[in-house]
Design a protein around this nucleic acid. Structure first.
Lengths: 152, 152
DNA sequence: TATTGTTATACTCTATAACTATA
DNA sequence: TATAGTTATAGAGTATAACAATA
């Protein structure tokens, strides 16, 4: 090891090796851009994620959606109320206590808008990565989450 | 493309391609574990990050630390007050309005404890990655942050 | 004029507890 | 007993604005 390398090693950024730090910092930055991207539609990231989930699995109850997205029941109530008020989702009674939630026609149109804005958002954030690297990264992060989640 | 693949494609998780979603979800999980890891020391992640920064660059003002870590001046005040009250840092007047902040002897000992707990934390979170992959990932995330940050 | 440090404050997100109605 | 949905509320983290003291 050359002296200059040794010096660089000694002066290494103490956060360089902390994967968690970089995860967090990048996540904050990306979330801020996503929030700004969705604002013109009058949606927050949580709203958009509900639209994506509903488009994929129509007819889930709002408790199902919460479990799927990691949002607590108590916090789902005002989120769903907002989407209902904007006419983006419709509820249909399943039994006396459960309601199947579906995207309304307006909700389907909004979903398409969300897909477009999120694609632009992801392209803007991750333009420096090749599609292959981007895909590998997404798979790695998802797999990591699954491993850790299972352990807990 | 075989029919089975087509079906799988059609049923693909709508979040699979969203790097930002996986970043966020994993970050939340990792931060929760870090918070729990540091709790026995009476520290929050923000406190620990300040100790790491100060160990690396002793004598920074608290405004310097805030800029370094992305913490606002107004929010640095109570954080520093807490560290002072626990005797972990010491201030030394630079001029009439600035004070150089350094780790006290207790702060240095605490820093060593933090390093140990954070190493365990990272090992626990990222045990499924080889050291090489882990390092590559950290570098990729740091580089991504730098690129995006510069654009903003 | 700009910067340091501080206080007050507001806003968002998330977490917990309690309640009802129903299964 | 357990679950769906709701309400109220508390906490943490972060943001802005304003101020005094100093550069």
């Amino acid at each position: 090891m050359r002296a200059s390398e040794q010096i660089e090693t000694a002066a290494a950024d103490p956060f360089d090796a902390l994967l968690g730090y970089h995860l967090r910092r990048l996540s904050v930055l990306v979330m801020a851009d996503l929030t700004a991207s969705l604002a013109p539609l009058g949606l927050k990231p949580a709203d958009a994620s509900i639209l994506l989930a509903l488009h994929s699995d129509s007819g889930m109850t709002q408790s199902d959606i919460g479990r799927r997205l990691g949002i607590q029941r108590a916090n789902m109530a005002p989120l769903m109320a907002g989407l209902m008020q904007n006419g983006l989702v419709e509820k249909q009674a399943v039994d006396g206590r459960s309601q199947a939630v579906r995207l309304s026609r307006a909700g389907q149109a909004m979903h398409r808008q969300v897909l477009g804005l999120m694609a632009e958002h992801e392209a803007r954030m991750f333009a420096s990565l090749t599609p292959a690297v981007r895909q590998r990264l997404a798979k790695q992060l998802k797999a990591l989450w699954q491993v850790i989640q299972q352990e807990d």
